[in-house]
Amino acid sequence: MADDQSQLERWVTFATRIVAPVTLISGLLFYFGYVSARAQYEYFGIDVDTIGLRTQDYVMRSPQPLLVPLLGVTLLAVAGLLLHNAIQPTATTIRRAKIVTIALLLLGVVGLIGYPLLGHIPYYALVVPAVIGLSAATLAYLSYYGGKAAGLTPQYMLLGLLAVVTTICAFWATATTAQYSGRGLAKSDAEDLKQFPVVILDTKERLQLRSPGIEETSLRTAGTEQTFNYRYRGLRLLVVGQNRLFLVPQQWSASDTTLVVPLDGSIRVQFQFQNDPP
């Protein structure tokens, strides 16, 4: 009985060690996917919370904004290892490198404090965390390696604080990259809105649409009763939300608006085939 209980405890401990990292990773994937989607749909005038995307949808969107940061961090780690193996720095070299690194770290901190004056500069939210994070990581490496070479005990408190600063800056820079990625994806979509499915929309009442390129046709026929009285062409399906369709004109214009229609009996929707015969 005791052996069975001990084995159960081991399995519970093992499962806990797996579930915790998976939960953390899932939370990060959701966050970066949400940031990217929010920036993407803001370009079309939509608050992403009104779409009603599921957690899984945000997680599935996260690889694109995370690809560049992960690749960049990996390449920097490889470059750091190659540099570490290629050189044998002396105490003087390490001391000089520390001075330069501390100067860069202070420069990044000044940029952080000066946000009210510098926040409008392009790529501010990417450059500042990159400078602070890389400087903190380099300073931690130099402190550990220099102390080890001199036979001193590593200052674990300092190394821990620098690791926290590096992690926070990496998170900040990655979130900024996700935002830029979402905005860039939206602009790429706007360049060719014809890539989205063609929608023919029938409604009971006139919609009074003002976006250029949308054609309105009356379906009313004398002597007959029509459930749907107006037909609209020139619309494309941007995204499907919870019981709603988000439609955009097939050609981008600054005066365009996103049309939100409910998926109920008040409309009739047709999706047109692509003009590409088999």
Rank of each mutant, 00 (worst) to 15 (best):
I18P: 04
I18V: 13
V19S: 07
A20M: 09
A20W: 03
P21S: 01
T23H: 08
T23E: 08
L24G: 07
L24V: 13
S26T: 06
S26P: 00
S26Y: 03
S26W: 05
G27V: 04
G27C: 03
G27F: 03
L28F: 02
L28T: 01
L28Q: 04
L28D: 01
L29V: 03
L29G: 10
L29D: 02
F30L: 13
F30P: 04
Y31C: 12
F32V: 10
F32R: 13
F32A: 15
F32W: 12
G33Y: 00
Y34A: 05
V35G: 00
S36W: 00
S36V: 02
R38M: 06
R38W: 00
R38C: 08
A39C: 01
A39V: 06
A39R: 07
Q40N: 10
Y41W: 02
Y41D: 00
E42P: 00
E42F: 03
Y43N: 03
F44D: 08
G45A: 04
I46N: 08
I46D: 01
V48R: 00
T50H: 11
I51T: 06
G52T: 02
L53M: 09
T55C: 07
T55I: 13
T55F: 11
Q56R: 13
Q56N: 08
D57G: 14
Y58N: 05
V59M: 14
R61G: 08
R61Y: 02
S62C: 05
S62E: 09
P63Y: 10
P63W: 12
Q64I: 12
P65Q: 05
P65K: 05
L66H: 00
L66Q: 11
L67A: 15
L67P: 03
L67M: 08
V68E: 11
P69G: 14
P69T: 11
P69E: 08
L70R: 09
L70V: 12
L70T: 15
L71I: 04
L71D: 06
G72S: 15
G72D: 01
V73N: 07
T74G: 15
L75K: 03
L75M: 13
L75E: 08
L76V: 14
L76W: 11
A77S: 03
V78Q: 05
G80C: 10
G80D: 10
L81D: 09
L81F: 00
L82C: 10
L82I: 13
L82F: 11
L83W: 09
L83I: 07
H84F: 12
H84E: 12
H84W: 07
N85F: 03
N85A: 15
N85D: 15
A86R: 14
I87V: 14
Q88W: 07
Q88V: 10
P89T: 01
P89A: 02
P89D: 01
A91D: 14
A91P: 10
T92Q: 12
T92K: 09
